[in-house]
Structure formats: C-alpha cells, structure tokens
Design a protein around this nucleic acid. Sequence first.
DNA 1: AGGGGGTATGTAAACGTTTACAAGTGCAGC
DNA 2: GCTGCACTTGTAAACGTTTACATACCCCCT
Lengths: 346, 346
Amino acid sequence: MTRRAPSIRDVALAAGVSTATVSRTLSAPELVSEKTRESVFEAIRETGYRLNVTARNLRRRKTGAIAVLVPNLSNPFFSRILSGIAEVMSENGFNVLITDTSPLSPDEHRFPEYFSLNQTDGLIVLDGMLSRDLLLNRGAPESRAPMVFACEWIEDIARPRVSVDNREGSALAVQHLAALGHRRIGHIGGPPDNVLTIARKQGTRDALQAAGLPCRAEWVYDGDFTLQSGATAAAHWMASPDRPTAVTCASDEMAMGFIAELYRHGVSVPAEVSVVGFDDLEIAAHFVPPLTTIHQPRADIGRAAARMLLERMATPPQDRNREPVPQVVLPVALVERLSTAPLAGP
Amino acid sequence: MTRRAPSIRDVALAAGVSTATVSRTLSAPELVSEKTRESVFEAIRETGYRLNVTARNLRRRKTGAIAVLVPNLSNPFFSRILSGIAEVMSENGFNVLITDTSPLSPDEHRFPEYFSLNQTDGLIVLDGMLSRDLLLNRGAPESRAPMVFACEWIEDIARPRVSVDNREGSALAVQHLAALGHRRIGHIGGPPDNVLTIARKQGTRDALQAAGLPCRAEWVYDGDFTLQSGATAAAHWMASPDRPTAVTCASDEMAMGFIAELYRHGVSVPAEVSVVGFDDLEIAAHFVPPLTTIHQPRADIGRAAARMLLERMATPPQDRNREPVPQVVLPVALVERLSTAPLAGP
DNA sequence: AGGGGGTATGTAAACGTTTACAAGTGCAGC
DNA sequence: GCTGCACTTGTAAACGTTTACATACCCCCT
C-alpha cells in the first residue's frame, strides 16, 4: 500500500538528469546550470521529494547532531541557555540532543547509548562535575568529538570555554550590600567542589576583604544550588546566635529557598536580612520580594558556546591545539530589586 | 593520520566470521551459536568497534529519534515532562529532539529543518496551538510519523492523548476556597483559545455553580500562563471596585506573578486575597507565601506519552485506526499551602 | 586544424549496516 | 541410504546519498 518515499533517483528520472546532478543542485547549486537547476527543482516539487538526511550523513561520515550535557534539566537556569544553543545550531543544520546527566544512583552516571556510540559530531558540556575519564575515554581515541564547556568546566581538560565573570558577580553583590551599610555579610555557596562555587566564594572573600569587612567561616553555608538547600541554609541562619545581616547566594534558587523558609518562620526579607541571588531567572523579578540578583546573559552563553563548537568542528583535528584554546567570559550585572535594603538601625 | 574507525568488517576479520554473523551477534544474538558469539565479542573488544547508528538507521529505514514540540522551553512546567519522556525513550534506544515551537514572528512558526525532512520516527506534541495544517501536511502523506499529544491537544486531530483531569483540578481549587468561606471567587485563565484554558474555565464555572456561588464575568481575567500576565491580572484586580476575595489560576506562574505584583503594591496574600495555582512547580513550595496549588504528575505525563508513542510506532500504519485512539487522563490533587486562608470577617 | 581551459554533466564507487536467500552441517525417522 | 528438519553461517544486495574521476561540449587562441 504505502509506496516508498521518493528518492533522489525518482527526481533524477523526472528531471531527465543523473542523480549526481540532483545531488549537486541541492548541495552545490553553483555547479549546475540555471536551466538544469530549474528543471530539478520542478521535479522535486512534482515528486514531493525529501532529502534523506540519514543517507547523507552516512555518506558524509557525520551525524548532523550535537549533544549537550546538562546537570539537571529541571533547573530553569538552563532553559535559556539551551534555547541559545538550539537557535544557532539549528541555523547551521544541526540537531541538538539534550541529555540530563544527573546520576540515577550516586556513583553511576547515566550516559545514553548514543553518547558512547558517538552518534554526535560535537559536545557542549554544562556540567563540571562529570568525571574526567567518562568525558575523555568515550569511544575510540580518534573518534573523540570536539567538545566545549559552557558555564561550568573541568580544570584539567583543556577545551574552549564560555563562562561568566563569576568573581565580578560576587564582588558586585558584596559591594551593593556594603553600600547599603551592611558589615556582616554571609554567603550561601553551591556544592563545595563545583567550579562555580569556588569562583564565587573566592570572589566574595576578596570583595569582602577589599571592603575591609570580616569574612567569617561560620557565615558561609554550603548548599547545592537547589531551593531545598536554600531552605536548609535558612535553618542554619536562624539557629545561629550571631547572624549576618545580609547574605549573597550562588544561585537564585537558593536565595528563594532561603527567603521562603525564613518567611515560614516569620522572618522578613529585607527587613531583617538582605538577600542577593545569582542568575536572574525569570521568576526573580516576580518573587516576593522581587529578588536583587546578579544577571547572567543566559541566551548569549548558549549562543557563544554553540558558535565555539561550530568553529571547533570546522577546524581539522590536527590544527585544534595549535593555538591556546579560546575562552570567552561574558559580563554580569547587578539588578537591584527589593530583597535588599539599607541596614536598619545604627 | 587518523585511521578510520573500526567497522563491522574489521570485527568480522578479527573473529574469522562474516559481517552477517557479527551483525546478528549484535541485534539477534539468539541466532548465533554461543562459541561464535563469544569470539565476536572478543573481536569487538580487541578492535574497539562501535556500531555506526547512522548506517543501521539507513538500512533499517528509520531514524532512531523522536521529536517533541514544546510551546516554550523556558517554562519550567515542561522540564519534568521532558525528563519523563527522555527516560523511557532512551531506555528504548531512541534519541529525543526537543523543539521550541514558540513563533519567532507572530504568524510564522519555526519548524526546524529536521522536522520537515522527516528525520524522526515519531512526534510528541505538547503544544495545542499549532496549526492543523502545519502538523498534518509536513512531508509526504505516507511519511507522516506517528504522533501523540500530551497535556495539550488539538480537538479535530484524532491521535492518542495523555492529559490531566483539568475539570477536576479546577473543581478542587474552587471547593477548597468555598470550604474556607469564600463566596466571591475569580479566575485567571490562559490564552483564550487554548484547550487547557477552556477546560479549566469550564471546570471552574461548573464547580462554582455546583457550590451555589456566583460566577461573574468581570472576575475572570485572561492571561497567557506567564508570570507577566499574572502581574497584569493583579493590576486589573486592584483597579476593580468589586473584587473577588479569592482567585484560582490556570498556572502557577500566573499565580506567582499575581501575588508578586500585589506585594509590590502592598496587598498581602492570603490576608487580603487567597490564591490557588495550577501545576505544582518545584518553586511553588518555596514561594512566598508557599503556594496552594493543583498538583500535576508531570513526570508521569511524560512517561505515559512516551509509552503511547512507542506503542503507536510499533503498530503498522494500517492497523493504527482500527480501534478508537487511546486517551489516558491522569489524576490531579490539591496541595494546601499558605496562599489560601479562611475568609476574614463575616 | 589543433590545443587549452572552462563549464556542465554522467558513471560508479563508496559510506557501514541489515537481511533475504542459499548452503552447509548433523541428526532423526524411515 | 535417503529425506526432511533444525540450526548456523555465508553471500551479496540493498538502504539513499555524495563525490572522485571521466567525459563531453563550447569557445577562443595560435
């Protein structure tokens, strides 16, 4: 009943040319005379022909897809980055396979089959916690697809990287609070061994020192970027006899979790404690109170990473490590809203 | 320099068998004697062979990928659904291509190339606002890939569907508010022509009527599911001389946008107005105040949709419309938190 | 007239699998 | 000893493109 879909052969037949000419009309039109080109297009219309991308990819020895490894798809932080990536990748004819790398069990990372089967021409890694071996020993050595990091990265893997000025972001947060008169400033960090956590903690410490403010170990709480861990930090804050009057957070979600938990216990923000986030998620502007935070250009991060990968895929493997690997760092900005306020009282 | 990746030929050579035997060892091991099987596996290890999925797909005339059409990737509502889909799809060896269908310009929907080129074996549609033609006329008639709807759907396209009990959800919200003594209950809906908007509005109206409560047209506000539209509804609420004392929303984001905008103008929830959302996003539990809402089993929706699609892909096209198309509707539940309170005063 | 350089096309061999078909073996039943 | 069957394996033809190479033609120059 259901006929085979028309192939390039059928088009060639209909147009009275060879399959080579049809193929050329499609992928290198300048090689084909205008008259022929037109009759080919006409034949394509007639037959309802659609290019079979699988066949093209087989012949060209590439897959036409890239994979992006996301630590946690449920985290709204990544959505914009993903659309940035998808935007430039689909412009360039690539499919984007999105993979959540969150481990199913603590020590077993889930790597989908297509990954080990090197079904992708390239890789964008948003997860800096993946094991080095996992990332490098997949597939045969020569089949290692080009890879770039975005947001997070792994220190001892030398690959192009796009990130954000984390230290500057932390500094902006601290300076803002200092300008409001706060002198006891705490910090809620991400997972202790995460590169972002480290960069932001260090940035916070340095800015505190530069402002001549104390940097007490008992004022920095460890979290894991999630809402829940913000709530946990709030419990610690409330339990502490000697609290900071303001805290900076390494993510908006922790900031919101922190504020909500405080609210539950009748502690009000910013009246009793000022809070600044990091990320500027959409919801930040619509939180209660609207969240003062550090804005990250998320779509730009995605677009930049995609462009970097495109470039790396285009350069032949032997040239890839000629020059130092590119690193772009994008600017951040403080967005003042209502979760921060001048220190009350003298 | 870089040798070709080992192919099935190299394995066959190393194991002293034919390529057919290697192929069978991989995709139909029961046809191969145990001795041979073992030597093939040994040869695979030796050579570092990886299956080339592109070649397999070409030969098998399928792509090994499914696409999912999401109205808006930035909406955190979809993330869990996507992981549910990805979970069962990757278990079954399929890649998942995620596509944001949000129009770039008002009347031009963005359909990535791979879609029109039917590079997918199946389709999960989460967007009920797509045009009928767009969805049905892609590709040649016989190449139409199996399709299922999830969450949203299009009335006059008969396809399997998994949805949620929207009327029940709306009813639960209204009953909860009524039980708290509210008699003036409003509603913030989604885009007017969206199927969910319609179902939830109708459910609200019916529940109101069943409870003997008024259902005033000026108490229902039109939104579009976004935070911003919730804020806009708040402006209308505040401007109204004769306000409802409680509102139900067709999405959590609108509920939060509503509350935040009220907060900005000094109106407090739930003291002055009770609010119930719909979705139960992660953030709902950590909002200020924590949001009373209707829980949707989002991961289950994704998993169910994926399983339906798998089944539909497995049944030959001519059998596909034998029986009535399956429809599963999953249950919802009210989650009471702090954004609703008994009506103050008599 | 012969040669050189484009330009436009065709021929046919890949790309790496899967699978219909054929063929070989061993064994049971007669 | 022959037939038939079950089980393994091999042979070779697809799947639908792209592309190196060959060819044909036209035009211009000497």
